[in-house]
């Protein structure tokens, strides 16, 4: 029996509201995503929010209109309330992959998790790198095509194609939910590392 966790990436006010295009994409994804998270909580599946926090001296951090976003302690760095519940876990990260120099792997191992559903934004950056990192660490990886966000649809599709080719099952939120509820096994038909 698989032991699941749901990861969200960067669902933070500064990042959701980066620009109008981003805001619209998130608005489109929000209803089904919020419903999915609620259902997973009902099933006692842990929800882990990866919270991007930039260090003030990180010269690789992306500025928003000349301003460094998601600084520790600011409202903009907080996980948006719509996606958050008291029982959820928040793991701080400073780079793209949620595993990079964080406690995520340790937390998932304590929870006994072997299969993770990776959601959030952006598909071609944090979702993709976190998925690769998870795969290399031996987790089964699932990515819902309607549970991830990119500002540009072409970026999202390219990333989903890559994920499906190399390291993840790509499906949709409803199908993933059904399988988890039913206890059906996912077919992790991915290319093994030689």
């Amino acid at each position: 029996m698989a032991r699941y966790a749901i990861l969200t990436n960067d669902l933070q006010y500064d990042l959701i509201n980066k620009n109008e295009e981003r805001r619209k994409q998130v608005e489109r994804f929000a209803p089904s995503m919020i419903r999915f998270l609620k259902k997973m909580r009902e099933m006692n599946i842990p929800i882990v929010h990866l919270q991007l926090i930039y260090d003030e001296d990180d010269n690789h951090a992306e500025l928003h209109n000349g301003v460094l976003p998601v600084l520790r302690g600011t409202k903009g760095a907080m996980i948006a309330q719509d996606y958050l519940d008291d029982r959820d876990i928040i793991v701080e990260k400073n780079k793209d992959s949620g595993f990079f120099e964080t406690k995520l792997d340790e937390r998932l191992k304590v929870l006994g998790v072997d299969t993770i559903v990776i959601t959030g934004m952006q598909t071609q950056i944090c979702v993709q790198t976190t998925a690769a990192d998870a795969y290399f660490r031996g987790y089964h990886v699932i990515v819902p095509s309607d549970g991830v966000v990119s500002t540009r649809d072409s970026d999202k599709q390219r990333a989903l194609d890559w994920l499906a080719s190399y390291c993840a099952v790509v499906s949709d939120l409803d199908s993933i939910e059904r399988k988890i509820v039913d206890g059906t096994q996912f077919q992790f038909n991915v290319v093994p590392i030689p």
């Binding site: 400073n94 780079k95 793209d96 990079f100």
Partner: peptide, 10 residues
């Protein structure tokens, strides 16, 4: 390592 892409251990 620069961007935290998840490949640095492999």
């Amino acid at each position: 390592i620069r961007e935290g892409l998840g490949f640095e251990r492999r």
